[in-house]
Write a protein that binds this DNA or RNA. Structure first.
Length: 555
RNA sequence: AGUGCGAUGGUGUAACGGUAGCAUCACAGACUCUGACUCUGUUUGUCUAGGUUCGAAUCCUAGUCGCACUACCA
């Protein structure tokens, strides 16, 4: 039955907490995106982690938008984020916004001022940076540090009332300007921004910094396990300090290593650049590692969940081979997608002993992996389209497709024997000729023959056409971010190859956007969102593994 | 340089003082009306040097290497 699976380090922490009766055994996580961009595969694994942990331990998981910077945040992103999480198959327990807590946060700040743990600083950004010191020299205390509590209270209220311009004053925590952790050298709690906020409008002109919003929001929601990536590890002492001084619910932060993928970039800044500079068509371009891009590409949500599960979770840096993701995609699609025939690079096959005008209709199984997958009808005639690469005038060794004298099975139809080919003046093959064996009809084969090769085909008079977009990796090297020079220098020039007139079998005529199929022997494809009944468009989701390609490469 | 975190096959992840395992990749073979899927097998690993111990990936010491932190971003 089910194998005993070892726990990851977060599950261990949680199980220990439950065993110790911490929080009465309650588990409450949260996924805290900032609504300033689209979610990517890294977020997807974080979503699976946070929601998955809550699910596993009968807990809850909130969705909380970390919207404390009105300059970059927009409602458009809120909607796309919610949509992506739902598509991934998760439901949040509470939908919250850090901006919901602005009033409470303000009161918390007042509390800290009253306790002498915060002060208003008149220093400019440059002065603050100057006084901060650096990695090996301690900082200097601001002249404002010794202001009286009464004055701080008055000034902070005036900041809120809009009496000061952007950057004129800040509220800082009073901790230790000589602390080896730079974040503890009197970090900023509030800054002035006369900006319109996507939810609170013009109600506020002071906004809390991440460090004075995130932990407090966790605490307000009584989050038990606040999970974030490793770069926030230096923030944890500050996270704990604020909670302790405030005496509020003690949420705890735990960090894990973000997961990187080969042949891609993950930072929002770089992704934004790809979009803005039109290297891709948008955030949901099928080559993008965004959730919306992968969805459009045809990656099933279940594959993303499986991927997240498979790669696990740890605290060491890593770069996951994209082959792992592709494996998960293939494994899911193999079980669920119907097989159909499409000829991407066509050459005509003429069956010289098949009467002109005659046709057969074959029932072809939709999915060998699914006994209840049903069948569809596929028309057959004297002239068929086949792949150009399925014929060789002189067969290479181990090549068992069409070549003069060779026999192959036409999938779901007859066995044919190649008799030769026609060429144009330039020597290009224009037609392949063969004869068929009537007694080899699929399902009623009495020929007694077995052939090594089976190829796919589409009947010429019955064929429909579609545009097929052949996608490949966006970058041509494993780790574009770590390479010398600009990451954009490593964009794969062949990341998208559009085939305008691919022949597809007629059963595909009514395919709807989002529908996933396997073009037999060619890969998994899905109908693009831009597809219409008049102009069908397919995206290549992922290729099939191809032992023949490897054989050819070996030479 | 200061502080913190980390180091297990090509990649990801287990082993919590007692047989270095799983997945993927690669390779070889079987099967096949998809050169797919499936099945079988193979190669490849504990950063280094000491120490503790009957026994060390695990504990200790010293080193090496990598990453993060010096935004009024999150």
């Amino acid at each position: 039955m089910s194998e005993e699976r070892s726990l990851n380090f977060l599950e261990e922490i949680i199980e220990n907490d439950i065993a110790a009766g911490k929080n009465n055994g309650r588990v409450h996580t949260r996924f805290p995106p900032e609504p300033n961009g689209y979610l990517h595969i890294g977020h997807a694994t974080s979503i699976c982690l946070n929601f998955g942990l809550a699910r596993k331990y009968n807990g809850k998981c909130n969705l909380r938008f970390d919207d404390t910077n009105p300059v970059t945040e927009e409602t458009e992103y809120v909607e796309s984020i919610k949509n992506d999480i739902k598509w991934l198959g998760f439901e949040w327990d509470g939908e919250y916004y850090a901006s919901d807590y602005f009033e409470t946060l303000y009161e918390y700040a007042v509390t800290l001022i009253k306790k002498g743990f915060a002060y208003v600083d008149d220093s400019t950004a440059e002065e603050i940076a100057e006084m901060k010191g650096n990695l090996n020299t301690p900082g200097k205390e601001s002249p404002c540090r010794s202001r009286s509590i009464e004055e701080n209270l008055r000034l902070f209220e005036e900041m809120r009332d809009g009496k000061y311009k952007d950057g004129e004053k800040t509220l800082r925590a009073k901790i230790d300007m000589a602390h080896p952790n730079l974040l503890l050298r009197d970090p900023l709690m509030y800054r002035i921004k006369h900006e319109h906020h996507h939810r609170t409008g013009d109600q506020w002109c002071i906004y809390p910094m991440y460090d004075f919003a995130h932990g407090q929001s966790d605490s307000i929601e009584e989050i038990t396990h606040s999970i974030c990536t490793l770069e926030f590890i230096h923030h944890r002492p500050l996270y704990d300090w604020f909670i302790e001084q405030l005496g509020i619910f003690p949420s705890h932060q735990y960090e894990f290593a973000r997961r990187n993928l080969t042949y891609t970039v993950m930072s929002k800044r770089k992704l934004l650049q790809l979009v803005n500079e039109k290297h891709v068509s948008g955030w949901n371009d099928p080559r993008m590692p965004t959730i919306s891009g992968m969805r459009r590409r045809g990656y099933p949500a279940a594959a993303l969940r499986q991927f997240s599960d498979t790669i696990g979770i740890a605290r060491r840096e890593n770069i996951v081979d994209i082959a792992m993701l592709e494996f998960c995609v293939r494994e899911n699609l193999n079980k669920t997608s119907n097989r159909v025939m499409a000829v991407l690079d066509p050459v005509k096959l003429v069956i010289t002993n098949y009467p002109e005008g005659k046709e057969d209709i074959f029932d072809a199984g939709n999915n060998p992996e699914d006994p209840n997958g049903g069948t569809r009808q596929v028309p057959f005639s004297r002239e068929l389209w086949i792949e150009r690469e399925d014929f060789m005038e002189v067969a290479a060794k181990k090549y068992f497709r069409l070549a003069p004298g060779n026999m192959v099975r036409l999938k779901s139809a007859y066995i044919v024997q190649c008799t030769g080919c026609l060429k144009d003046d330039a020597g290009n093959i224009t037609e392949v000729h063969c004869t068929y064996l009537p007694e080899s009809k699929s399902g009623h084969d009495t020929s007694g023959l077995t052939v090594k090769g089976t190829i796919h085909w589409v009947s010429v008079p019955h064929a429909r056409t579609a545009e097929v977009r052949m996608y490949d990796r966006l970058f041509r090297i494993e780790d574009p971010s770590n390479e010398e020079g600009n990451f954009k220098d490593y964009i794969n020039p062949d990341s998208m190859n559009v085939l305008p007139g691919v022949y597809i079998e007629p059963a595909l005529a009514g395919a709807k956007p989002g529908e996933a199929v396997q073009f037999m022997r060619k890969g998994y494809f899905c109908v693009d969102t831009e597809s219409t009944p008049d102009k069908l468009i397919f995206n290549r989701t992922v290729t099939l593994k191809d032992a023949w390609v490897k054989e050819v490469k070996k030479g």
